[in-house]
């Protein structure tokens, strides 16, 4: 990998993908790993491209009328906004940040994260694409593998080590705040004002996975029900004390409370049965790195 190749990737992105990047930045495809994403993070994170030259190239394309403002703004927000912001947070809050686990999540990593052998289609495809490309785009990371881990209560150490290992662009300054803070809400809402938890409905809206899946995304209980649905309510019920006061969560707790008690019980039983069957592995990080997750 050279700077020349990275500059070629940048030119290609500007010429062919940027124009549609904004509109489809949150879409998920069952067959296409990259969509209109640039995949420039790895080159930027190892220093082959500077964030300045990347942002300026995008701004220039917009000025020349070759990209709409929603694409240019959406992209520059990721670099000038999120990327710089998580780095700032990392260096202001370490070493304590890595020890945060405010939702008290203790589960190991689902074993299928290592091979993608699962019948949940969205997870299977996100993990297969990760295995094949050392890459997944941000919505796959946040709303598929990340959201599932959040709902199941996977520990920050277990999930963070996986993200650090499997993505070519992952270095701790950028991986840790994104995984522990943004994805797992383990920093108690320092980064995001509410957890990015979602049921199967979100995945069905943004992707074409569900039509290929053996589960029915419209069902919450029963053998064919999409596991995301009952896990979603299980998560909310588990963390009611912490989250019920959050203005942005009020509506959703309202819907939960309006359900008949027998319905709520059936949903929680469904989720518990799924979690009991879930095969997991303990965190595997080593040495000082692994020690960094523990409180002293």
């Amino acid at each position: 990998m050279t700077r020349r190749q990275a500059l070629g990737d940048l030119r290609h992105f500007i010429a062919h993908a940027l124009v549609d990047f904004g509109t489809y930045q949150d879409a998920i495809s069952d067959r296409e790993p990259l969509l209109y994403h640039s995949r420039l993070a790895a080159a930027m994170n190892i220093g082959l491209l500077s964030p300045q030259e990347v942002c300026e190239a995008v701004e220039t394309a917009w000025q020349a009328g070759r990209a709409p403002i929603n694409a240019a703004e959406g992209f520059i927000r990721q670099i000038l906004g999120w990327r710089e912001y998580v780095r700032g947070i990392y260096w202001q809050r370490m070493p304590g940040y890595k020890q945060e686990n405010r939702l008290n999540a203790r589960r190991g990593l689902p074993a299928f994260y290592w091979h993608g052998d699962t019948d949940l289609r969205c997870l299977q495809r996100a993990i297969e694409m990760t295995r094949d490309n050392a890459y997944a785009h941000h919505i796959q990371r946040l709303m598929v593998t990340g959201n599932f881990a959040l709902l199941c209560g996977v520990s920050p150490a277990a999930l963070c080590d996986w993200y650090l290992a499997v993505y070519a662009d992952a270095f701790e300054w950028v991986e840790l705040p994104n995984t522990l803070g943004m994805t797992l809400y383990a920093d108690g809402g320092y980064l995001g004002s509410k957890p990015y938890c979602a049921s199967g409905k979100y995945i069905d809206r943004m992707s074409d996975h569900c039509r290929h899946c053996r589960y029915d995304v419209k069902q919450v209980t029963g053998d064919d029900a999409c596991p995301f649905n009952s896990l979603y309510w299980h998560f909310l019920e588990r963390h009611r004390e912490r989250l019920k006061g959050n203005q942005r969560m009020k509506l959703i707790y309202g819907s939960w409370d309006k359900m008949a008690q027998s319905r709520r019980e059936a949903i929680l039983t469904q989720a518990n049965a799924f979690l009991d069957r879930l095969d997991t592995e303990p965190p595997y990080g080593r040495g000082e790195h692994a020690e960094g997750y523990r409180r002293h």
Binding site: E56, E59, I69, I76
Partner: peptide, 30 residues
């Protein structure tokens, strides 16, 4: 970056609302 005379280009800071289209079978990817 993306500023016009002290104001955000396009008249707003955030275009998230335009950036949430789901996948579409007709799309052609580079």
């Amino acid at each position: 970056l993306l500023m016009c005379e002290g104001e955000p280009a396009g008249g707003q800071w955030n275009f998230d609302h335009d950036n949430r289209a789901p996948i579409d079978q007709g799309l052609d990817f580079p």
